[in-house]
């Protein structure tokens, strides 16, 4: 199970808060050069899992290995390989940005001669070069968030764990940070948690969805979309026919009547019936005025995965 590329390996991770199980039997595997998106509604156990992966919280059961080093038995050696940004960026507000990043570098055992260089590089990567001498307390939330990211990567760890890294940033900064995460993902392994689904689509190679302490899905983005195997087309007609007339069109697997002449047509991904529908609609004068591809968005899959389980 332990290849040289396996950077994070968590097995049957569980966390019990008295009677309440915050996380149950979560398995997690991450290789070098992968970005894993951690997705889930609030209270799903994302942050708890991340705190366990970084040694901030001891798991009730299960084990974590960082680059093959057990986090429970050799915490110091394992933590050398970790960079972590918690939900609230941990900042010493009285220090300047430079002082704080130097402290982070020293605590992570960056060689004394390389501290300055490491701090400069982290500042440059996070867009902090101009504010090095400013006191952290005087900087805006967006800067503070980026200082939080900078302290997690200043020692260039092979595993970077970011809990909601783009919260509080403006759209430009979000784009910059996503680029940074992709760049980090080339050399290191990155785990990031987020509520923002497009963010996952934009930067992640793989996604793990958590709900009520369970991992309900784990796999690539493409396989997540395939969860709903059938694609969909939505059409709106001025003079709608009986649904059976639409279902007769070759390639159509199913028709949902949405009312007001709007139908959702399901089909196998291999056979796209758009042309056939268009032809039939013109031929029979159904008065087609809208035809959109109702491709399954991540949102749909996400809500199905997390709400379906909630009802159960």
């Amino acid at each position: 199970m332990t290849g040289p590329d396996l950077t994070v390996f968590a097995e049957k991770l569980s966390r019990q808060y008295r009677a309440h199980a915050a996380v149950r039997d979560v398995n997690l595997e991450l290789r070098r050069g992968e970005v894993l998106g951690f997705l889930g509604p609030n209270g799903a156990g994302k942050s708890t899992t991340m705190r366990m992966l970084t040694g901030n919280l001891a798991p009730s059961a299960g084990s974590v290995r960082i680059c093959g080093i057990d986090l429970t038995t050799r915490p110091v050696a394992a933590k050398m390989k970790l960079g972590y940004l918690p939900e609230t960026p941990p900042l010493y507000r009285d220090l300047t940005v430079d002082e704080f990043l130097q402290l982070a570098a020293r605590l992570h055992r960056v060689a004394a001669t390389r501290v300055g260089q490491a701090v400069d590089r982290a500042k440059q990567r996070c867009g902090l070069s101009e504010v090095g001498r400013r006191i952290i307390a005087t900087l805006s939330k967006g800067y503070q968030q980026r200082i939080g990211i900078a302290q997690a990567i200043v020692h260039e760890p092979p595993v970077v764990i970011l809990d909601e890294p783009t919260v509080g940033l403006d759209p430009n900064q979000i784009r910059e940070i996503r680029e940074l995460i992709r760049e980090l993902g080339r050399e290191a392994s990155v785990i990031l948690s987020t509520h923002i689904l497009p963010e996952v689509e934009a930067v992640c190679d793989r996604v793990q969805i958590m709900h009520r302490g369970h991992a309900v899905f784990s796999g690539s983005i493409a396989s997540l979309k395939q969860l709903r195997r059938v694609g969909g087309i939505e059409i709106a007609l001025r003079t709608p026919p009986a649904p059976t007339d639409i279902a007769d069109i070759p390639g159509v697997a199913g028709v949902d009547v949405l009312g007001d002449g709007v139908f959702r047509i399901c089909h196998e991904p291999s056979a796209d019936p758009t042309d056939a529908i268009l032809g039939r609609a013109v031929e029979r004068r159904w008065g087609l005025f809208r035809l959109t591809s109702a491709e399954t968005s991540l949102e749909q899959v996400f809500s199905e995965l997390t709400q379906g389980d909630a009802a159960a």
Partner: peptide, 14 residues
């Protein structure tokens, strides 16, 4: 109070 404990706990310090 400042939530900086995580900074110390996740750094390689026993």
């Amino acid at each position: 109070r400042q939530q900086t404990m995580a900074f110390l706990l996740s750094s390689p310090l026993s």
